[in-house]
Design a protein around this nucleic acid. Structure first.
Lengths: 266, 266
DNA sequence: TCAAAACCTGTCACTTCTGACAGTAGAAAT
DNA sequence: ATTTCTACTGTCAGAAGTGACAGGTTTTGA
């Protein structure tokens, strides 16, 4: 599914580097890499992006971890977006463009630096719907790069920096070659922290009670009367359960709870 | 939890029976018992109740199977109601009166014929809320009787026939002594048929797909786009899944599917 | 004694689900 | 040839859930 790929690949000879990057660029990159190594929380991670903007002026950025499942379908496991329009995200996610987006496919195929514009999208016979969605939000011109290596698990990453002002540029290529592996490390670190958190997350007694009533098909209101609390409180518990398990809604929470053995089946 | 109780207990001597029941009553009872033995569907079961009304004129009737769980909580597993006001049921279920209703408690304690009226409810210190709910719908005066025996599983039954016109009456006592064990058999039969149906229910390929997307927290609309069908169709599949598994909503469907091994946890 | 965690409560806009109505089309089995 | 099953589609009212706002008390452990 994935190419086996070494951690850092740079084909730039020192002389070439000097040709692509200024001394200032190099210093900014080193600064960036240093911060990456101390990235543990989502805040730390998000703080990296203004730094990147100093090197590559983008409007919005997406970053995510994903892997292919048994049915050859890309499963998104963790993501972080910067400045990305909510409407764009909703449309993209709801229409499941992830499975059809050529930017994504190419990234998870090659993990190489890619510059995208209208002509290249056309060349790859991308869906009209997706192209117009990209166009609508001015995110056609973009640089995409991702990474994957065994040490950070089965998930590959993809990073997309978009702006109408982004043109193909050897300097940008070089910058991304340095930026992305470290960003990948930081994101993977973040994800494994999050997973640890989800697995460690202790469901409280009250939450267990709520979970068991949910299992039996009770609504919030039913449970509120059963437990003798307000409906709002039941929702509060359910929300906590969802957050702790990393679920977006009740059905998923039940599935995850079942997997974790948090609910029993009489 | 349950008294061990023999199938049919009748303490009536032939002479006493003659004192309580008319020949016509006896014939109607025999007719009733004959139908009970051929009761396989819910329609068959519901058809029994007009027959009972010939013997005991009630306004509405409830019948259900339940058992106590590890936390000493009564778990309702199957029920059928006749002429029962929807509002009453909703209120009763939502406020979980099942756990506090003295009629129910007494039934599952003794499995004896019981006649209830306002004075007796007061005597047992029943909740005011429940009493007024009973009063509101004119179901205070009632006969309650239930049964349980090993052959029909761990579930006990309760049957309640209510009407303001129902007064304590030796004939009614005698009738219920005959009616209830057979009604219990019929209801148990019905339930085990239903269970068989739920367990046999084969989830189709499409339903399995839907289930797996639900597991991942997708909404109907998300899934509709993913599968390339209308949202209505997704709901159609979800409804079928719920019916097949005997779930009232999606969370419960997921829990039941997990128990049945219909969904896998990667 | 201070902080953290658990538990509790309210409102409000918005989205999603449920249950009921009423159909169509195609494939497989009797 | 008819029935049965699967899959599909529509509308619509009302119920339920979500996410974000902004608080409260009590318990527990450092």
């Amino acid at each position: 599914m994935f190419d086996s790929r070494e951690v850092i690949v740079t084909s730039y000879e020192p002389s070439e580097l000097r040709f692509c990057l200024s001394g200032n660029d190099a210093l900014t990159l080193l600064e960036f890499i240093r911060i990456c190594l101390n990235c543990n929380t989502k805040e730390d991670y998000l703080a990296l992006f203004p730094k990147i903007r100093e090197l590559l002026p983008y409007n919005c950025a997406n970053s995510f971890l994903a892997h292919y499942d048994a049915d050859n379908r890309l499963v998104l496991v963790y993501n972080a977006n910067i400045n990305t329009p909510k409407e764009w995200l909703q449309e993209y996610q709801a229409k499941n463009y992830l499975q059809r987006d050529v930017k994504v496919r190419e990234n998870f195929r090659s993990y190489k630096v890619q510059h995208w514009d209208f002509d290249r999208l056309k060349l790859y016979k991308q869906d009209e719907g997706l192209i117009s969605l990209y166009a609508e939000f001015g995110v056609i011109e973009s640089y995409v790069h991702g990474s994957r290596f065994a040490a950070t698990g089965k998930n590959g990453s993809m990073f997309c920096f978009a702006s109408p002002s982004i043109k193909f540029d050897k300097r940008a290529d070089a910058i991304l070659e340095f930026v992305i592996p470290h960003l990948h490390l930081a994101l993977s670190q973040l994800y494994s922290n999050k997973q640890l958190e989800w697995n460690k997350a202790v469901i409280t007694q009250r939450e267990k009670e709520v979970l068991n009533w949910l299992k039996q098909g009770k609504s919030s209101w039913d449970i509120s009367v059963i437990l003798g609390v307000s409906e709002r409180t039941v929702n509060y518990h359910v929300n906590n359960i969802r957050k702790k398990l990393g679920a977006t809604n009740r059905p998923q929470a039940l599935a995850l709870a079942a997997r974790r053995g948090l609910i029993e089946f009489s």
